[in-house]
Amino acid sequence: MSTLSFRRMQESDLDAVLAVEFAAFSHPWTRGIFLDCIRSGHECWLAYSGQQQVGHGVLSAAAGESHLLNITIKPESQGNGHGLALLDHLMQQAKARDAEVTFLEVRESNQSAARLYERYGFNEIGRRKNYYPAVGGREDALVMACSLLD
């Protein structure tokens, strides 16, 4: 796993976060969504390789469950373990908030992300039809879950 450092996302980080988000996704999150997550007390984290921000992630946790809402590694930094390291950090935050299971949705077309989640221990438990906006229409989401109990 790659060596990254992490720090909590702040509102002042959002220009840099949005630059990564817009570089990575055809349908990126907005500033307002990130603001809502920060202000709601979600686990919002930045990932750094040295002094360079390489990604970010957002996780909500309540009532013994957590939901991975966003995990993004900038395109030029993908493929070298940063995604797995950030995922592990977010899962540690879920455990610290007493979550017993983490859920997520991933675009059906995003097979590299689905493989990353499977490597970590997530399993597909369902589908959400037409969940994501896509170029030329809508796209299904794979719903995945991972137990956090040892």
Results as ranks from 00 to 15, higher is better:
His42Tyr: 15
Ser77Ala: 14
Glu76Gly: 00
Ala23Glu: 14
Ser40Lys: 05
Leu68Glu: 05
Ala62Val: 15
Gly79Trp: 04
Ala23Gly: 09
Cys44Ala: 14
Arg107Cys: 02
Ala94Cys: 10
Glu65Ala: 08
Leu87Val: 03
Leu46Gln: 06
Ser49Trp: 10
His67Ala: 02
Val58Gln: 07
Thr72Pro: 00
Val58Gly: 08
Lys95Met: 12
Glu21Ser: 13
His82Trp: 03
Leu68Ala: 06
Leu46Phe: 05
Ala63Thr: 04
Met91Gly: 01
Gln52Cys: 03
Thr102Cys: 15
Ala99Val: 08
Glu21Lys: 12
Ala24Thr: 06
Asp36Ser: 11
Val106Phe: 04
Arg97Asn: 12
Pro28Arg: 02
Pro75Val: 03
Ser26Tyr: 05
Ser26Asp: 15
Ser66Phe: 02
Leu84Ile: 01
Asn80Cys: 04
Val17Ile: 13
Leu90Trp: 07
Lys74Asp: 07
Ser26Phe: 01
His27Asp: 13
Ala99Asp: 05
Gln51Ile: 06
Gln92His: 10
His42Met: 08
Leu68Trp: 07
Thr102Asp: 08
Gly57Arg: 06
Gly79Gln: 04
Ser66Pro: 01
Ile33Trp: 04
Gly32Glu: 13
Asp98Ile: 03
Gln92Cys: 05
His27Cys: 03
Pro28Ile: 05
Val106Tyr: 09
Gln78Glu: 12
Val58Met: 07
Leu84Asp: 09
Leu90Gln: 10
Gly50His: 11
His89Gly: 01
Trp29Glu: 07
Gln53Thr: 11
Glu21Val: 11
Gly79Thr: 03
Val54Ile: 14
Ala24Tyr: 01
Gln52Tyr: 04
Tyr48Arg: 05
Gly83Tyr: 00
Ser77Ile: 00
Asp88Tyr: 00
Glu100Val: 08
Glu76Pro: 00
